[in-house]
Design a protein around this nucleic acid. Structure first.
Lengths: 157, 157
DNA sequence: AACTATGTTGTAACCATTATAAATAAATAA
DNA sequence: TTATTTATTTATAATGGTTACAACATAGTT
């Protein structure tokens, strides 16, 4: 995600307004690198502006996604869609214990390099996800229940 | 997913019974390579046994997942969790137009090779997903609305 | 046959998300 | 400024996938 000013410009370009609610949501999104769900953003929003509705957060994040300022993370479908606010490295490490999602820098061949193995397929994007145990959880003995771990528990991999 | 007999043995091992409903669901899962959702399995089930309930399909697929015979596909969160019945190559190509999900054979370094770049992280599994346009959709001019495309439409990537 | 454990079914509950419509705020035109 | 239009927010209801629950049915065992 780019700076708040850049995004504001992008909004105006589409005829959208930079309301206080949107500004706050965008600021929170820019700051948060944990790939938050809508609800997690919402909870941060109401700390500053308690009267903001969930719908506004949903709407704003959807608009950001349409503008390409935010991307849905598809690695995990537990407890709601997570949003990625960083446009560069799109590879992730997902901790099976605390269910945190971390950006990871792994060298992959470019998307165009698959044309050989995939005759006729046009590849425009790729995403690698690593699953495992993060150092924190290893040190703590694995069983720290992180966000969203309660609902369906640990999955079997 | 392994053969029905192998899975039946795996069931009995856990004290579970191979009922007609479960047998049918397992047969359908073994046959279907399209990474179906529960609802898609259910629709195939009722063709043969119309009285089977959705709950049974949910339960059985969940049990299969617990046994490790089936794996949730995390690439796309549209229209329900998709299940992967094949334990080997876990890389996928997702067509942004028809939203079909295809197994793909791409060489990746083993999970253990990431230990250098990820100090302290234990990687147990990895998954690469390629996003793009499949040959069918390219030939048809892109706009074939496939399964689930209606609800949220094409995402921006 | 009776007993016990397991499985199935229908229904209701749950949760994330989207649709809708009324109320509000901002931008523009007069 | 005021009126008018347009965009935005809000609360509430609807939707859709999934799970919980309780009654009923089945299979296995003594």
């Amino acid at each position: 995600m780019r700076s708040v000013e850049k995004i504001a410009a992008s909004l105006r370009e589409k005829g959208l307004k930079l309301t206080p609610q949107r500004r706050l949501i965008i600021e929170i999104l820019s700051r948060d690198r944990t790939h938050p769900t809508v609800d997690e953003v919402y909870r941060q929003v109401v700390v500053t502006m308690p009267e903001v509705s969930r719908t506004t957060v949903y709407n704003t994040i959807r608009e950001m996604a349409t503008l390409g300022e935010v991307v849905e993370v598809q690695d995990i479908s537990d407890g709601g869609i997570r949003y990625d606010t960083c446009a560069e490295s799109h590879n992730h490490f997902f901790c099976l214990s605390c269910r945190s999602l971390i950006d990871v820098d792994v060298d992959l061949p470019g998307a165009e390099s698959y044309s050989g193995a995939l005759e006729g397929y046009q590849v425009v994007k790729q995403q690698l996800t690593l699953y495992g145990i993060c150092p924190d959880c290893r040190d703590k003995g694995l069983s720290r229940p992180g966000r969203g771990a309660g609902k369906r528990g640990l999955k079997k991999f």
